[in-house]
Write a protein that binds this DNA or RNA. Structure first.
Lengths: 117, 117
DNA sequence: GTAGCCAGTTTCGTTGAAGTAACCGGCACC
DNA sequence: GGTGCCGGTTACTTCAACGAAACTGGCTAC
């Protein structure tokens, strides 16, 4: 047999949360959307098909709290608000790219398997 | 400004689901647990601190449906059941390793930020 | 003066993952 | 014959994420 599993394998993780909070429906997609630079609220609404403004606000606020995103409001007219990845948020891009690649390669497989069952 | 966001950026994704279903609380951890070879039910219970047998069963069944995991029952005494990653499941290891590395490097940062707010 | 954009907020309801606790049959061990 | 392990199952509850729909206030453009 293989070595026994370390009982403390996940000791460093917050038990109450996923290993990393990239699994909720929107965070991953938002990071991808902000990859190329700052984006405005309504600009983000469109590609995230079906997200409601309420949920987008909540997601962005959560990412702001985690230091992944900065919100910048300009006192212009019409008002302009921009969201951008922080340097910390940018560190997520590389590992997420690996996930995106995997998804691109295997999503169809997954969909087939699910449809078949 | 940067190029406009492609409105169909996520057209290939199932709108009703996260980009990839690795974000629920346990799937990522389970893949890591199965990295080194097949594991038994009770062996998985321990490092996943606090998971209940019910939730472990549900998670494993979901991963089985998705073709990530195989369940093998041996007609022995005491009964033995082993869970192992399929070749398809193994393809997840590489991108997940990137996420694990990120988590290891930045979890403390994240915890500090969260504690401060 | 009415219509619309911008960046949201508010209220209410739904859904599904997760948790709690108890229970199961078969066997081994003492 | 009582206890405990093994791999679960069942019933019930809780909670956060998600969603639909309407609304806001300040401004501009027609």
């Amino acid at each position: 047999m293989t070595r026994p599993l370390d009982p403390d394998l996940f000791a460093a993780c917050d038990d109450a949360r996923p290993m990393i909070r990239i699994g909720d429906k929107w965070t991953t997609k938002l990071v991808v959307c902000l990859r190329d630079g700052p984006r405005r609220f309504n600009e983000l609404l469109r590609p995230l098909r079906g997200i409601t403004p309420k949920v987008l606000t909540e997601s962005l606020r959560a990412m702001e709290r985690d230091g992944l995103v900065v919100r910048t409001a300009y006192a212009e007219n019409p008002p302009r608000v921009e969201y951008a990845l922080t340097p910390f948020g940018r560190t997520l891009l590389e590992p997420l790219a690996a996930i995106c690649t995997w998804t691109a390669q295997h999503q169809s497989t997954l969909n087939e398997v699910r449809a078949a069952s």
